[in-house]
Design a binder for these strands. Structure first.
Length: 611
RNA sequence: GCGCCCAUAGCUCAACCGGAUAGAGCAUCCGCCUUCUAAGCGGACGGUUGCAGGUUCGAGUCCUGCUGGGCGCGCCA
């Protein structure tokens, strides 16, 4: 079973072949001119070039070969050589019946399933998530669902940043601030072996004294000092190396950091409906690093440079000019080398990334790994991927950075609140949910729904608003974060989509109450034709989203489908129609609902029953 | 200095290998609730696709240059 576009493409390809022209020119697309056609083929235009003939003549010949196709109500050559096709009502009705009978609602699975890992490039330990973190989690979540739905085996890994320099900074800052913690940490460090009782006592003290809010407050200060004060920085680096060497006191304190962060992250991710299959972090590959470094050394890839150890990843002719601090310009390899071991002996960002690639190869063996991470890290991933290919840790081309743009404020710079701080993701969710509650009361649903359902509905509306506002943008480009737009419920928004689903459900409930059943679909009205054409376009939207790793194709389809339904709803009465028409429209409405809910699910958006 | 990305309606964004009249939403204005949920529907207004060249029968899309903006460039992640 295939969509109309594909079916027609085969027919048009055959018609081209019959005319002695390359069959691949028979590619059919939805028409740019809905007033003239449902589908079109532009193949006669390039054909004219190779065949040195008039495109209109070619189009006419292809049209002649197509005439009589039962699916087509009309087929004609138009304009400069376009082939316009209008699908018959019977063919649309038949296609609608196919989609209605299909658990996948007309969307096909991939031919060969792969094992895919999605790396969410997770947030860092000790920092609350702000609105900028929305993107990687919801894009990653949506891609995971899309890939899984297409038939791949997919694992999503949060991949937290929990093992680097920022941990050394925090250990320093926390012990500086509180003498009792500093004393306990020193004591544990000296002791080396830590008993269960020691551990419990330590966590009791840490729990009492160090919250996420403290870490959030201390980190920016420590980071700033690290930049300006070399001594402070060097101590943080040493602390990082000591943590990575698992000095008992530092390690316990670090485990506390990770714990308080995880509680907040779980709350935020859960609220967004984002689930990770793996809650791994950089620290999880720590034990792989030493053997990996030895392996890189054995393979002759690791070289000493300015006290650090690096892997060169540039090819022989890949160079760039670089300006040195003294103003002179030198030619250096490009891309930059991968820094594997710092001069303090600690693992770097790229080191843990490389070890993670190795870890995944051993544990899961993915055919493909997608990194849903900020576009700004493109160079970094290029370097890590090259190193992984050189070392044989991944098959060339199997690692892919699915970059996305940053979320900027209306001034074009990374988003800040009016007060100059970052807007925390949780605050954003709470704010939008409050607005959804207000709106539900206005609509008179406050009293009708029981409190739990009411709360659940408000939450779903809020999440739909936030996610759809982001996912409707192509992931690659930066966009402006506008609070009003993200918490808007009218127009091209998540709540609009939920609302259309709610209207269908309401009609279906009433139909059921009066004993009316969906029946055979018979397409007749223009609004019905348009709706079925949209239902038919689902497969292509899914293919585009999959191939381009871009959920906005699904978002666009869901919106257009909801819009087509809304027009159908306004133009075609359902319950008051005569029995056969009523049964047909009920079936159309039900099929639309199922596809809409499925598309929303692929975006990670949950539907509601009433709103 | 070198490199990557971006520039489309007043605003925020789309646009399927280069194809007909570049589409949505918001905002503004005008209509539509005694019939299935008005978080809706219909209509109007709104464009020299940053600028200048080039390739092509045809360019928002490809190439070159320029302007403007964002980002990155080994011991943060």
């Amino acid at each position: 079973m295939s969509d109309l576009k594909r079916g027609l493409s085969e027919a048009v390809a055959a018609a081209f072949a019959a005319a002695g022209l390359p069959a691949e020119l028979g590619r059919v697309t939805p028409s740019d001119r809905p007033d003239l056609a449902d589908f079109q083929c532009n193949g006669a235009l390039p054909a004219a070039k190779v065949a040195k003939r008039d495109p209109r003549e070619i189009a006419a010949e292809v049209v002649a070969n197509l005439t009589g196709d039962p699916r087509l109500a009309s087929v004609e050559a138009a304009g400069l050589g376009f082939i316009n096709m209008r699908v018959s009502d019977q063919a649309l009705s038949a296609r609608a019946a196919e989609i209605a009978a299909d658990p996948r609602l007309g969307a096909q699975a991939v031919e060969t399933a792969r094992k895919v890992m999605i790396d969410y490039g997770g947030p860092n330990v000790a920092k609350p998530m702000h609105v900028g973190h929305l993107r990687s989690s919801i894009i990653g979540e949506s891609l995971k669902r899309i890939y899984r739905f297409r038939g791949d085996t997919v694992l999503g890994d949060a991949h937290f940043g929990d093992w680097g320099y920022q941990m050394g900074l925090l250990i320093g800052a926390v012990t500086d601030e509180d003498a009792s913690i500093a004393a306990l940490v020193e004591q544990l460090n000296a002791k080396g072996e830590v008993s269960d009782a020691d551990e419990a006592a330590a966590f009791a003290l840490f729990d009492a004294k160090v919250s996420l809010a403290d870490l959030d407050r201390l980190y920016p200060l420590a980071a700033a000092r690290g930049k300006t004060e070399p001594d402070y920085r060097d101590r943080a680096r040493k602390l990082t190396a000591e943590l990575q060497a698992r000095r008992a006191g530092y390690f316990l304190l670090w485990r506390h950091f990770a714990k308080v962060t995880k509680v907040a992250l779980e709350r935020d991710f859960h609220a967004l409906g984002v689930d990770f299959d793996l809650w791994k972090g950089e620290s999880d590959v720590d034990e792989l690093i030493k053997p990996m470094v030895e392996d890189l050394e054995a393979k002759g890839l690791l070289v000493e440079d300015q006290g650090a150890r690096i892997v060169h990843v540039a090819g022989p002719n890949e160079t760039k000019k670089k300006k040195l601090p003294d103003g002179s310009v030198v030619v250096v390899p490009s891309p930059d080398p991968l820094l594997v071991v710092s001069s303090e002996g600690s693992a770097m960002y790229g080191t843990t990334d490389l070890a993670t690639i190795l870890d995944r190869k051993q544990s899961f063996g993915p055919d493909h790994v997608l990194y849903a991470v900020d576009q700004r890290q493109a160079d970094h991933f290029e370097i890590v991927f090259r190193a992984a290919y050189l070392a044989g840790y991944a098959e060339k081309g199997s690692l892919e950075h699915v970059g996305f743009g940053t979320m900027n404020g209306t001034d074009g710079k990374p988003f800040k609140t009016r007060e100059g701080g970052v807007l925390k993701l949780n605050d954003m969710i709470v704010m939008t949910r409050d607005k959804a509650r207000e709106r539900l009361h206005e609509a008179g649903l406050g009293a009708e729904l029981d409190p739990d359902t009411f709360e659940d509905t408000a939450h779903k509306v809020a999440v739909a608003a936030l996610k759809f506002a982001d996912l409707q943008n192509f992931r690659g480009t930066s966009y402006v974060f506008d609070l009003d737009r993200f918490s808007s419920f009218e127009g091209k928004t998540g709540p609009y989509l939920l609302y259309q689903a709610v209207r269908v459900k309401s009609v279906l409930r009433k139909a059921q109450a009066e004993g009316a059943e969906p029946g055979p679909i018979v397409v007749a009205e223009p609004a019905e034709r348009d709706l079925v054409l949209l239902l038919d376009a689902y497969d292509q939207a899914l293919i585009d989203a999959y191939d381009k790793k871009a959920p906005n194709f699904i978002a666009e389809h869901a919106y257009k489908l909801a819009q087509a339904f809304s027009k159908f709803y306004a133009a075609c009465p359902i319950l008051s129609a005569e029995p056969a028409v009523k049964a047909s429209r009920l079936a159309l409405a039900q099929t639309t609902l199922r596809q809409l809910e499925q598309a929303l699910d692929l975006l990670g958006i949950a539907a509601t029953d009433r709103m």
